[in-house]
């Protein structure tokens, strides 16, 4: 294998092997199995091996397919947003905040809209933290105000103003019909209305369903996805505050 072209790895370099499971809305018979193989071929599995087919009720069949994909992956063409700031330890983040602000950094967090699932915001804010990292409450130089679930946007704005928040963290875990997008744009618009230009707190949203790179469209400064740790969020906030300080 030379350079930037790779294929999936089953048990031999370059074999291209993948596994796949899916359901077709057809009764289980020979035709159904043929249909599954046809789908696999159209997905680029050649040859495809149908290893399991099982009827699920009278109208559906479940399949497991193994096969070699014909597609190649060109690593040079892969585009990702790399973290543009250094990852700081809690200690370094505290020191940086002290130096930058000479006071505590105030973070207000909430789940907005109808979402009642605080797992995301709690993982970032609660001392307990996430993935072995302590949450922002653990940082000596960060004051955390966690408003919990189903917070109304006007309440969030009012509380952010009352607390003189430097940053507002909003979590959207469970969403349907793009509710997370509507809620976020509504939130960012409310902040822009309530604050003079250039003084809006750092607006951060987190959740598994946000698209990386859509921050500008949503009117927020940063999006965090699945698996984000408190340390990443703290490091980002320090970085963003430093950038804003440099600007003014």
């Amino acid at each position: 294998m030379t350079g930037s072209i790779v294929r999936p790895y089953g048990d031999t370099t370059g074999d291209g092997m993948v596994q796949l499971s899916f359901t077709l809305p057809v009764p289980h018979d020979k035709r159904a199995e043929g249909a599954a193989l046809q789908l696999a071929r159209k997905m680029g599995l050649e040859p495809a091996l149908l290893v399991h087919a099982k009827a699920m009720g009278p109208d559906f069949t479940f399949f497991v397919v193994y096969g070699s994909v014909t597609h190649l992956v060109d690593l040079d063409e892969v585009q990702v947003i790399e973290r543009e700031y250094p990852l700081l330890s809690a200690k370094d983040a505290n020191t940086a905040i002290r130096k930058l602000l000479r006071r505590k950094l105030v973070v207000v967090g909430a789940c907005i809209g109808t979402d009642a699932h605080t797992v995301g915001i709690d993982a970032i804010l609660n001392i307990k933290g996430f993935a072995g990292e302590k949450g922002l409450e653990y940082y000596r130089e960060i004051k955390v105000v966690n408003l919990g679930a189903q917070v109304l946007v006007p309440d969030l704005v009012a509380r952010a103003r009352a607390e003189k928040a430097d940053a507002v963290l909003v979590s959207q875990v469970v969403t349907q019909k793009d509710a997370h997008i509507h809620n976020t744009t509504q939130m960012s618009a409310a902040f822009r209305e309530a604050y003079p230009a250039g003084q809006v707190p750092i607006l951060v949203v987190g959740g598994p369903r946000f698209e990386e790179g859509s921050a500008a469209t949503l009117g927020v400064d940063r999006i965090f996805g699945r698996g984000t740790t408190p340390g990443e969020v703290a490091s980002y906030l320090v970085h963003e505050i430093a950038t804003r300080k440099g600007r003014s």
């Binding site: 109808t114 979402d115 009642a116 469970v174 969403t175 349907q176 019909k177």
Partner: peptide, 21 residues
């Protein structure tokens, strides 16, 4: 139930086809 319902101070009426999660 739709995620918002616990904080509604009324019970919606009729057969419904629009809910969130």
């Amino acid at each position: 139930r739709s995620t918002g319902q616990s904080l509604l101070d009324y019970v919606p009426e009729g057969a419904t086809r629009e809910g969130f999660a």
